[in-house]
Amino acid sequence: MSTKQHHAEQQHNARRELQQTIAGDSARQAQRRSVTRVASVAAAIVAVGLVVFGLWSAQPTNVSGSSQAPAFTLKTTAGTSVSLADYRGKPVILYFNEGAGCGACTQQMAGIEKNPGFAQAGIVVLPIVMNTAAQIKPDLDRFGVKTPYLLDDGTVSKAYGTLGKGMHADLPGHGFVLIDANGVQRWQGNYPSMWLDPATLLNEVKSRL
């Protein structure tokens, strides 16, 4: 073999090795991309599964009772003060919720206001939040809620065992407490779904009075 032919063969072999190297790198990159895509899809499936599980596992809890309801006096968004004792002789629903920033919570109260059955049955609904008036009023205006909200520093929410029932350990969840005309706590229900149809709430309450 001549020197020229030998040199040409070396160049050919070098080009072939380079092509093989490039092809190998491309294959490895494609494999890595494929693995990454599979991992991403798997992670997404797991995330969706956790969300679905969370939604399905966030079931409402209902507890009957017959103990005297803790007394309280709280300031309201209307600038007044409200005591539980003010409503002795009437059934009262305390609506504990996350308050400012929770649109579903305010929509819940708006839905309750639109149902005339509560007033017709003589049932008073008192929404209680751990906010200042300045914090919660924009939400009330946004959803057209007229009922004054009771402003709690956490003392009342703790007394009624509502803290940590939702997404935040230091806030109430989304729940209701029924107190009868004699001041006795008859029922407490927590709803992690952040909604209870007002008609269902009314029926629940009536069945326990």
Rank of each mutant, 00 (worst) to 15 (best):
T61F: 11
F143L: 07
Q19H: 09
G65W: 06
L94N: 05
A100M: 06
L18D: 11
Q108C: 06
M167N: 13
T21Y: 13
G154K: 08
A85H: 13
V205W: 03
K137F: 01
V129N: 10
E17R: 15
V205I: 14
S64I: 09
A43F: 00
N203S: 11
M130F: 00
S64Y: 10
K165Y: 06
L201D: 03
E17H: 08
Q59V: 13
Q68M: 13
V129H: 02
Q5M: 11
M130T: 10
F96S: 02
M1R: 10
H12Y: 07
Q19L: 12
G103S: 07
Y191K: 07
I128Y: 03
H7M: 11
D153P: 07
V38Q: 01
P192Q: 01
R186W: 05
T155V: 14
D170Q: 14
T132V: 06
G117K: 11
A47H: 01
I128A: 12
L140Y: 09
T77I: 06
R32F: 00
L171V: 00
S81K: 15
T155P: 00
G166L: 09
E9W: 05
S193R: 04
H7E: 13
K206H: 06
P70D: 00
Q120D: 15
G175E: 15
L50Y: 06
Q11R: 09
A23S: 08
V205Q: 00
D141A: 14
Q31N: 09
H6Q: 11
V51P: 01
Q11M: 00
H7K: 15
N203K: 12
G117N: 12
V184I: 15
Y160P: 04
C102A: 02
R15S: 09
E17Y: 07
R32Q: 04
Q135L: 01
G122K: 13
A199Y: 12
V63M: 08
M130G: 01
Q59H: 10
S34W: 00
T200C: 04
I128K: 05
A8T: 10
M194N: 06
R186A: 12
P138K: 06
R32P: 02
G161S: 08
A134M: 02
S66P: 07
N62E: 13
E204S: 15
Q120P: 03
A44S: 01
K4F: 09
T162W: 07
L50G: 03
Q20A: 10
T132L: 05
A27T: 08
L55S: 00
A104M: 13
N131E: 03
Q20V: 01
A159Y: 09
Y160G: 15
S26M: 14
R88M: 06
G164H: 09
I179A: 12
N131T: 08
T155E: 06
P91Q: 04
N62W: 09
I136E: 04
D25I: 14
Q107W: 01
M109Y: 01
N115A: 09
V156Q: 05
H6I: 10
L202E: 07
G117I: 15
P148F: 07
G173E: 02
F118R: 09
K90M: 12
T73S: 15
A133S: 14
P116T: 10
G175A: 10
G164D: 11
G154F: 09
S2C: 03
K158E: 13
L209S: 02
V129M: 02
E9K: 11
G54N: 14
Y95Q: 11
E113Q: 15
G111D: 13
L201H: 03
A104V: 04
R28H: 08
